[in-house]
């Protein structure tokens, strides 16, 4: 339903848009990972993105975070900031946090240090050389440790954490950045059922404070989030709406057998 999508984009007031992709195309050696994709996410919204393998979900995140430059089209953040002109660090500083598909934490640093690096604050080389951890900042880290349930593992090297714990630590690091927009790439991949439940709770608690975009395969998880769903297929938006709505869409059923 790309047309419907465009009309949503047009109808949302510019200042209410958190993220607006306009006709983004990315190709790798002739293969179009994103094909004239347009998408709008409103401020404070929780959005799930699903789609079969190769639908362009990860590439979409790459474009938003500045890792990949689109061949054409533009991506706007918080109204009118053009993300396609900025590099990763600048985009991160703007307030976009990203969790990778594979958990990426600093394995040789302790859990505490991982969160300390994520802490919002000056990022320059000189500033970090002379930086000191102020007591309120330490308290914020402690609070986050509690929130992600890792308070008793603070001094452990992150490499020693379990897979689920690493996922949480990574989400914790994102939250330390105090981002406006959170991009979560398969946050529950490889988690146990109990961990998945916990994560769903955590993500739901974020909605409202942050705009959150979740890319997931796990339909139970998507259902648990209960958010608006966008279905990607071959680099385009195939359908958009509630989970029940898209699961009943015959085109979605055809390309993507939902579980």
């Amino acid at each position: 339903m790309p047309d419907a999508n465009r009309s949503t984009a047009a109808s949302a007031a510019v200042e209410d848009r958190q993220l607006y992709l306009d006709g983004v195309t990315v190709s790798f050696d002739g293969f179009k990972a994103l094909n004239d994709l347009s998408l709008v996410v409103a401020k404070g919204e929780l959005r799930s993105i699903i789609g079969p393998n190769g639908a362009g979900k990860t590439t979409l995140m790459d474009v938003v975070t500045g890792k990949t430059r689109p061949d054409s089209g533009r991506a706007f953040f918080a109204g009118d900031v053009d993300l396609t002109r900025l590099d990763e660090a600048a985009i991160a500083t703007l307030g976009i946090g990203r969790k990778f598909q594979k958990p990426t934490v600093f394995e040789n640093l302790s859990v505490f240090e991982n969160l300390e690096l994520a802490l919002s604050g000056p990022r320059g080389a000189w500033a970090t050389l002379f930086a000191q951890l102020a007591p309120p900042e330490a308290e914020r880290i402690d609070a986050m440790l509690e929130r992600i349930g890792l308070e008793d593992r603070r001094a452990v090297p992150a490499g020693a954490l379990s897979h689920g714990q690493k996922q949480w630590l990574e989400i914790g690091m994102l939250l330390m950045q105090e981002p406006q927009l959170l991009l979560l790439d398969e946050p529950v991949a490889g988690m146990t059922d109990r961990e998945t439940e916990e994560t769903a709770k955590l993500v739901l608690s974020l909605a409202g404070q942050h705009t959150v975009v979740v890319v997931e395969h796990d339909m139970e998880f998507v259902r648990a989030l209960g958010a608006r769903v966008t279905v990607l297929h071959e680099g385009r938006v195939l359908a958009e709406g509630s989970i029940d709505h898209v699961q009943n869409d015959p085109r979605v059923v055809e390309v993507y057998l939902g579980r």
Binding site: T93, L109, L129, M173
Partner: peptide, 28 residues
Amino acid sequence: TSKLGRVMLALRDAESRVRFLGYSVTSA
């Protein structure tokens, strides 16, 4: 022992994560 030192260690572990945290890998 500075925070910059930890950034250096961190970028040895996961350079892209450092970038997405907003640090300039180039300047470190």
